[in-house]
Computed example of a mutant assay.
Amino acid sequence: MPEARRPYRSTLRKSQARATRRAVVDAARDLFVELGWSGTTIDAVAARAGVSRKTVFTSVGGKAALLKLALDWALVGDDEPVPLEERQVLAEMEQQTDPRALVARWAQFVAELEERAAPLAAVLVVAADADPDAAGVHAVSERNRRRGAEFIVKRLTAIDGLRPGVTAERAVAAALVLMDPSIHRTLVSEHGWTRREYADWIERNAVAELLEGDNADGCE
């Protein structure tokens, strides 16, 4: 009988551990946004999550690890162990063959992602100047952002949607600017733009910079 109950106990422990980790990361995320990098302490995270200081370290790690995981979850929208490149939204864009529709979907995707991630990205920039571990997280984040820009350019190139004369490097640079979290903070956080207005702005500028004439027609 005891043998038959072990899988249940193991599943319960994993569920409890995941719930604790979720609480810790959620607490860290909120504190980072509210108090910034220097104002957030492990003790404050523990108190907000309702766990011990030791539990914060054993379930996630130190401040840089907390910020990394909070940002990772913000980028994908949940704590499921599925990387962004394997998410349905990327598959949808990979299947899109109309350049105009592809850019529109990409703009919506960026707007949704930055709504979750931009506040933490701002914290990471500050943290990178103060902490070597956070600097490493920031370097990886920047490489991943470039990969995101390269993705949309490669997809447009593959379906013959990229404007003639625009090099891949120039197109990637333009996409990187449109994906910059600081632009989200300026337009949305500071000036009150809605997510829809922000997505429309990304779309208009992406169409103007990346698409050739016929595909750019109809852009408002």
Rank of each mutant, 00 (worst) to 15 (best):
R6G: 00
T11R: 15
L12A: 14
L12M: 14
A19C: 00
R21D: 02
A23M: 03
D26V: 05
A28E: 06
A28M: 07
D30H: 15
L35V: 04
L35N: 15
W37E: 08
S38I: 02
I42C: 02
A46M: 02
A49K: 05
V51A: 13
V51T: 10
S52I: 00
R53L: 03
R53T: 04
K54E: 04
T58I: 03
S59K: 14
G61S: 08
L66C: 11
L69H: 07
L71D: 10
L71M: 13
D72P: 09
A74C: 08
G77E: 06
D79I: 01
D79G: 08
V82G: 11
L84N: 11
E86R: 15
Q88K: 14
V89Q: 12
L90V: 13
L90D: 05
L90Y: 15
A91Y: 07
E92I: 05
E94Q: 14
Q95W: 03
Q96Y: 00
D98T: 04
D98Q: 09
V103Q: 11
A104H: 10
A104N: 11
R105S: 15
R105G: 14
Q108S: 14
F109R: 13
V110C: 07
V110K: 06
A117K: 05
L120D: 06
V125F: 04
V125S: 10
A127C: 01
A127W: 04
D131Y: 04
D131L: 01
D131H: 08
P132F: 01
D133G: 12
D133V: 02
D133E: 15
A134I: 01
G136W: 03
H138R: 14
V140T: 10
V140N: 09
S141R: 15
S141P: 01
R143F: 02
R143S: 09
N144S: 12
N144I: 03
R146Y: 00
R147V: 00
G148F: 00
G148C: 04
A149W: 03
E150F: 04
I152V: 10
V153N: 13
V153G: 09
R155L: 04
A158H: 06
A158Y: 03
A158C: 04
D160A: 15
L162H: 11
A168S: 07
A168N: 08
A171F: 03
A173P: 00
L176R: 12
L178K: 12
I183V: 09
L187M: 12
S189G: 09
S189R: 15
G192C: 02
G192M: 02
T194I: 03
Y198Q: 11
A199N: 10
W201S: 12
E203N: 10
R204D: 11
N205K: 05
N205F: 07
A206N: 05
A206Q: 06
G213K: 15
N215C: 09
A216V: 05
A216M: 10
E220M: 02
